[in-house]
Design a protein around this nucleic acid. Structure first.
Lengths: 215, 215
DNA sequence: TAGATTGTTAATCGATTAACAATC
DNA sequence: TAGATTGTTAATCGATTAACAATC
């Protein structure tokens, strides 16, 4: 199987764009239009599709419904994805309440924190002691975790998750974590994203001929 | 000037790692160690540095303090960065309260929303009507904006920001926005990140020999 | 049929890495 | 000095794009 992180990211974007096309009444779509909507070339779209064995009609483009179905299947969106979260601080709490996850079939089923003041098992998404993470994950058979704890606690939190049997982690702490064979760590860092943006804005103003490649 | 998005992202990571090395008492560092801390090769570190004219000592490695100073300078972190935000929903509100920005010299100075119920000019970070965005940006001379509005409102919000003179936008809406010459849009999409992670976890379990390239 | 679009191959482009001369 | 590390060049690797034959 081909594993190119970028191509999977693009599949998600295609899917989102297709829903929008559907909303405005389209049934079929050409690689050209989809490419435009997502900001890539049409060759890229066709290449991505062929990578995953998705095919269209030589002259009629792609059926939107069938395409969405296929993409959702590839992306594992045809079943509800249960996720746990560690670190019920500012960002963590926001993610718990974040509506768009639900819409995408992703549900945060429990949060964990070391601070007893934050514990509350009665909330819709219960906030529990970190010590209970392992037993929760085992009894609820969850595979995905989100880390929203401070820098310094991130590695320990990951270790706890790995021991519990988590196989994929979205890490918001700005630190490179050491993971295990059977656990993938994906990093999101908002400060870094902003830093990055600021750099390019400054660069653009100093040298207006500078061009960017990706988003 | 060289503009490789990845290399700038790595500069941020190097900087973060260097602060940690400093905390534990290091004064000098070799490209090797730094590479390990960030999860890249030492050649990558040296290459990145040489791209930005950063040099070390042929046998003594790099002075941490001088290196941090240089990186901060490149990343524009030696002055406070003022940022505005549109969309004071769940995620927007969390970002407003997000402590790590402040720590990184990034300050959200005002938020804008179309919902009058959310308006409150007296908060530490005032929430104002979207119509006031333009005059605010002009009088406060801000260049960076964050978009946390729903999908459907994102393009209009960007247009308002561009008209106001914003040059860089961090967009959380899962949609490809059409921007102008003088405004860079950088996308962060949490649903997509999770989708992606879920895909790779599933792929890993189906075919345990699958390997990932980047984080 | 003629025209347009897919699917795929080959060419291009860019980023990462290996390797090593320079040198502290 | 001998040994180790930088800085840079050239080689490699991988991803994107151009181009076009197949075909609806």
């Amino acid at each position: 199987m081909v594993t190119n992180k970028n191509s999977i990211l693009r599949l998600s974007r295609y899917k989102n764009a297709l829903y929008r096309f559907k909303t405005i009444g389209f049934f079929k779509i050409f690689s050209d239009y989809l490419a435009d909507a997502v900001g890539v070339t049409s060759a890229q779209v066709r290449k991505d599709f062929s990578l995953f064995g998705i095919s269209g009609n030589k002259r009629g483009g792609y059926q939107i419904d069938a395409l969405i179905e296929k993409l959702n299947d590839i992306l594992g969106k045809n079943e509800l994805q249960k996720v746990i979260l560690a670190g019920a601080g500012n960002l963590g709490s926001a993610l718990i309440k974040y509506k768009s996850f639900e819409k995408e079939g992703i549900k945060i089923v429990a949060a964990f924190d070391i601070d007893p003041a934050k514990h509350n098992p009665k909330l819709p998404v219960p906030v529990l002691p970190l010590e209970e993470l392992e037993s929760f994950v085992k009894s609820h058979n969850t595979k995905i975790g989100i880390i929203c704890v401070p820098d310094i606690a991130a590695q320990h939190t990951l270790d706890v998750m790995i021991r519990a049997g988590i196989n994929g982690v979205l890490n918001f702490a700005p630190i490179q974590l050491k993971t295990a064979e059977n656990c993938i760590v994906s990093n999101v860092n908002l400060e870094t994203e902003l830093e990055n943006l600021i750099y390019f804005v400054n660069a653009l103003q100093k040298a207006p001929n500078v061009r960017l490649t990706d988003n």
